[in-house]
């Protein structure tokens, strides 16, 4: 098992290099540093000197991939790619185009993101599991039919409608919670209620419908018939036998997401004005701050791969048949 995890982590290195190369190509091959400088400094009336200065300031004055002026290892290392990518591997994210320390920003902004994502995630999953269980218990009846119809309808609504409607009703009409904003400490609570609630409600449709199919798949299996032949009640069968088996696909699907909770929700945070990593990313996109976007891409990939490894590990925990070799 440990050997497996170590191997998986080794395997992550070429993937991260690939990610870096890809983003690098997108950022520097399509748009030369000159283009970027011009975008930042204003397209018209920039002197070549200003551009050179801008580039030198940010280390973009070096060759892209291969420095012919240098010798030996330096010909590879004294390049934009090396300087801006290798440091990412030790989680040194460098500075944003406006000079801020990206690493510090991330450490600071991950807490609001987590404050929304974690409760949404946990309560959402518990609710989905429960609703799906209800649908499965009443399978074939009208409860099930209308439950599924409702789920499909709910998942057909864009997240942004949930948010806008939620803000309209909860904040504008009923004045229950503030419409947006954030605060420190416990005072943040009142700002969190609405986004968390909307996050949960918007996920119920898709989640409970998916989990329902997991349950139904299990209910048709032979061991359920055995359990019934043993004289167990429907509820015992559902809770003791079916639930535990259905947890295998549910949990493993869910575990992969856990690390990505760090990244925050782009839409939610920007609608509610929450200073998390999601809105950080959006701001960077809108300000065309490539350094931040690159850092977030790297962080996202890293967390994704971490999620894959976690998924494998969680398999061994919920399914005794799986052993990592």
């Amino acid at each position: 098992m440990i050997a497996y995890i170590i191997r998986r982590l080794f395997y992550a290195i070429p993937i991260l290099i690939g990610v870096n190369l890809l983003t690098f190509t997108l950022f520097f091959m399509v748009n030369s540093p000159d283009d970027m400088a011009r975008v930042h400094l204003g397209v018209k009336r920039v002197t070549p000197e200003a551009i050179e200065l801008w580039k030198a300031d940010r280390g973009y004055d070096k060759p892209l991939l291969y420095n012919s002026k240098e010798k030996g290892i330096r010909s590879l290392s004294n390049t934009i790619f090396f300087q801006h990518s290798v440091s990412l591997f030790v989680l040194d994210f460098g500075r944003a185009d406006d000079g801020r320390d990206i690493g510090r920003d991330i450490r600071q902004r991950m807490w609001p993101s987590l404050a929304i994502a974690v409760p949404t995630f946990i309560v959402g999953i518990l609710l989905n599991i429960t609703f799906a269980m209800l649908l499965a218990f009443f399978r074939g009846t009208y409860v099930d039919v209308w439950g599924v119809v409702l789920s499909v309808a709910m998942m057909s609504i864009s997240i942004m409608f949930y948010i806008i409607l939620g803000q309209l009703i909860m904040s504008k009409l009923w004045h229950l919670v503030p419409i947006s904003g954030y605060d420190t400490g416990l005072r943040a609570l009142k700002f969190l209620i609405l986004p968390v609630l909307i996050g949960i409600v918007s996920g119920i449709g898709a989640g409970s419908r998916l989990y329902r199919t997991f349950y139904l798949e299990e209910i048709n299996k032979d061991y359920v018939r055995t359990a019934r032949a043993k004289g167990l009640s429907s509820l015992q069968v559902l809770f003791k036998h079916v639930l535990r088996n259905a947890m295998v696909p549910i949990l493993t699907g869910v575990v992969a997401i856990i690390p990505l909770l760090f990244m925050g929700s782009l839409v939610m945070e920007s609608f509610f004005g929450i200073p998390g990593l999601g809105s950080y990313t959006i701001d960077a996109i809108n300000q065309q701050d490539f350094a931040i976007v690159r850092a977030m891409v790297f962080l996202g990939s890293l967390l994704y791969i971490f999620g894959l490894v976690l998924t494998d590990i969680s398999y061994t925990l919920v399914d005794p048949r799986v052993r990592l070799e």
Binding site: K221, D222, Y223, R225, T226, A227, R228, A229, K230, G231, L232, H241, R244, N245, V248, V318, D319, P320, R321
Partner: peptide
């Protein structure tokens, strides 16, 4: 069921709960 009339099935592999 199970108390006065018990039953065993063809596929012991799938008839037992794997977890």
């Amino acid at each position: 069921r199970g108390r006065r009339i018990a039953m065993i099935f063809q596929e012991p592999q799938s008839s037992l709960n794997p977890v």
